[in-house]
Design a protein around this nucleic acid. Structure first.
Lengths: 344, 344
DNA sequence: TTGTAAGCGTTATCAT
DNA sequence: ATGATAACGCTTACAA
């Protein structure tokens, strides 16, 4: 193939990069003045400001945030650890979190923690090495060494998507146990005697499942069948779950509480393919109130967690601590809400 | 609420952070030796290595990557700009891209560009200020100033999810025009005379739509109705699209080419709600082959783009340039594949 | 308003 | 195998 344009040699910095010193030389001022022109423009005379701006324009100067961070001890970087980037449940609050932080001049260094909890420790160390001004963690279970590193870093830390009375620093989320119980109560009020759970491979989902099962039986329910998926939530997994529940466990009717809307959606498709009526034969409850939930047929009854609010609240908590005004609350319970629609 | 644990004052660095100098002092060696112990352990005697490791353990030392980057001019940071984090189509290749880069010791600074193309310029500048070792961009349309900054940064750049013969540096993707044409040919081979398109607010989707429409008519098709959504793809938007197509444009039968599987899914749900048979009355073609596509009823015919491969290929292109071996190809066409299932 | 000088915590270079 | 010293490109006093 033809080389369309000149290619640069092996990744080296060949062209001397433009620094504030260069810009200053061209503008006829010192390097500090350039720095000031950028950070405190009112402390620089309009005339020199203009010369500096022209020099910046001419050279295409882009300030070196690395050097700035080293000198000022503020990186304007916030790091975030989330279980999964491809799961809309997490990516949606990351989105609002990022937007909020960006408004205040912070960039977000994101990493996926995935399934292995030991990886988190390595990731936390890697993130801390970038000297972030703050950090967001998903979940409240972290290794002792992780906690130690975080405490040692002496930065604001917010743990989201769960609640604890002993956060590393602050937490914003809701109680998964309460959510599971609330769904159980809701199901019992429906008058259903038999229940099943379909749960993805997720520690928090498991806590909802257990709380649901316990409360459902306590509240007079007859039985709860548990089906746990191997992997993450998906439509395919949901279809497989109903298949197993019906064919192998003989679950013929009752309510099914799924750990995510995607699973519930899969269950619904499978039910329709099998001619099982929803909600009359099987009542279906999802979790998350994803965009599509309201638009299925029948629309999905689910548990809403306000992920936008969560992202904003987490950002606000960090920002308050960074900017240094009032000490924000150590724990914020955003709660949840059961959204009743046609499926249950 | 009670303070559960001591809280730190307004975001300040109070505790003197541990540096290599501190570690060295404790281990009884100089700071440089600590540095070497971390980066080239074989050049340090086993005895001192052990002392240093103990000192690191005792102090909880986490190296300052910012200082390291400044001194070495290598940040081990790669930045990526994607249109949306909440869209699985993009987040899935970001995931594989990140994993690959992380294997080689790079962290990923991610940002969402969103809809406004002017924002990209600001974001590129912000990212460049972190002095990344490489950069990933989604799409091939960038402002002149963006290109200038990127060229000036003198780092490997890969543009993904599209093709051009004049990339800034390298590109990895596929041709949206070819994809649109291929779908048109496929539809004509089905023997369908009438077509409609349902397209999300996305420049690349629009190019597929236009290529589809043009080719469909060229190939003897009778008509193509275009329905364009205001916002991003969603099931709700898909339902709305079919509603509009049927009720307002009188589209009664034929093939519908959707710019994403999510839209197609919405169209399918709406069709089922209206008692329109798929594929006999309306044949449905999606785009993306998302996880759920194969598991709908009927399973969705769609266009597969191997997003995992895309992520890996993009990472490999950058890595080859960074590590400095062979100059990788300036453009890599990953192609696409029409996956025929039950919906068309 | 502008400039000088001293860091920031590493890595690179050159000695020992 | 280890150390001293000079960058790296900024910000933060402090001076002028």
């Amino acid at each position: 193939m033809e080389q369309v344009k000149p290619r640069r040699a092996k990744g080296g910095r060949t062209s001397g990069r433009v620094t504030m010193a260069t810009v200053g030389r061209i503008a006829g001022v010192s390097q500090v003045t350039v720095s000031r022109a950028l950070s405190e423009p009112d402390k620089v005379s309009p005339a020199t400001l203009k010369k500096i701006q022209q020099a910046i324009e001419a050279t295409g100067f882009v300030p070196n945030a690395i050097a700035g961070a080293l000198a000022s001890k503020r990186s304007h970087l916030v790091t975030a650890l989330v279980p999964s980037l491809t799961n809309i449940v997490y990516s949606s609050f990351v989105k609002t979190f990022s937007e909020r932080m960006r408004e205040f001049g912070y960039q977000i260094l994101l990493s996926e923690t995935g399934f292995d909890p030991r990886d988190e420790e390595t990731l936390i160390a890697a993130h801390l090495s970038r000297r972030p001004d703050a950090m967001l963690l998903t979940g409240i279970h972290h290794s002792a060494r992780s906690r130690q590193m975080l405490l040692g870093a002496d930065i604001p830390v917010v743990e989201v998507w769960d609640m604890t009375s002993t956060p590393i620093d602050m937490c914003v989320g809701f109680s998964h146990v309460e959510a599971g119980r609330a769904v159980a109560d809701f199901a019992r009020e429906l008058g259903v005697e038999r229940a099943a759970t379909v749960t993805a491979n997720d520690e928090r989902a498991a806590r909802r499942r257990d709380a649901f099962a316990q409360r459902f039986l306590q509240a007079g329910g007859q039985s709860v069948e548990a089906y746990d998926c191997d992997g993450p939530a998906s439509i395919a997994a949901g279809r497989g779950a109903l298949k197993a529940l019906v064919d192998e466990k003989g679950f013929a009717s009752g309510v099914i509480f799924c750990s995510s809307d995607a699973l519930a959606h899969g269950v619904l498709i499978e039910a329709q393919a099998r001619g099982i009526a929803v909600p009359s034969e099987i009542a279906l409850i999802g979790f998350g109130d994803q965009e599509f939930a309201a638009h299925l047929e029948p629309p999905l009854t689910t548990v809403l967690v306000d992920r936008e609010r969560l992202g904003h609240a987490a950002a606000d908590a960090l920002l308050e601590r960074i900017e240094g005004g009032e000490a924000p609350a150590a724990m914020v319970d955003l709660g949840f809400q059961i959204i009743r629609r046609g499926s249950a």
